[in-house]
Simulated scan of single mutants.
Amino acid sequence: MIDIILIFLIQIVFVPILTLRTIFMVKSEKEKASFVGALEALVYIFGVSLVLSGEQSIGQMIAYALGFGIGIYIGGIIENKLAIGYTTYNVNLQSHNIELIEKLRFEGYGVTVYEGQGRDSERYKLEILTKRSSEPKLEWIIEEYEPKAFIISYEPRKFKGGFLVKAMKKRLNVKKQKELKL
Results as ranks from 00 to 15, higher is better:
Ala41Lys: 00
Val43Asp: 02
Val48Asp: 01
Leu42Phe: 07
Ile72Glu: 08
Ser53Cys: 07
Ala41Met: 06
Lys32Pro: 05
Ser53Met: 11
Gly75Phe: 13
Leu50Glu: 03
Phe35Arg: 10
Leu39Asn: 03
Ile70Trp: 14
Phe35Asn: 04
Ser57Asn: 14
Leu52Gln: 02
Ser57Gly: 14
Ala38Pro: 00
Gly71Arg: 06
Leu39His: 02
Ile45Trp: 01
Leu39Pro: 01
Glu40Lys: 04
Tyr64Thr: 03
Val48Trp: 02
Gly67Gln: 11
Val36Cys: 09
Gly69Glu: 12
Phe46Val: 05
Lys32Val: 06
Ser57Thr: 15
Val36Pro: 08
Val36Ile: 15
Ile74Arg: 11
Ala41Trp: 02
Ile58Thr: 10
Ser34Asn: 12
Tyr64Asp: 02
Gly71Trp: 10
Ala65Arg: 04
Val36Glu: 10
Met61Leu: 10
Val51Ile: 15
Phe35Thr: 08
Ala33Trp: 08
Ala33Pro: 04
Ser49Met: 12
Leu42Trp: 02
Ser49Gly: 09
Ala33Ile: 05
Ala41Cys: 03
Gly59Ser: 13
Gln60Val: 02
Val51Phe: 14
Ala41His: 00
Ala65Ile: 07
Gly69Pro: 11
Ser49Leu: 11
Gly75Cys: 11
Tyr73Ala: 12
Glu55Asp: 13
Tyr73Pro: 08
Val48Asn: 01
Leu39Tyr: 03
Ala41Asp: 00
Gln56Val: 14
Ile62Met: 13
Leu52Asn: 06
Gly67Met: 13
Ala38Tyr: 13
Leu66Glu: 03
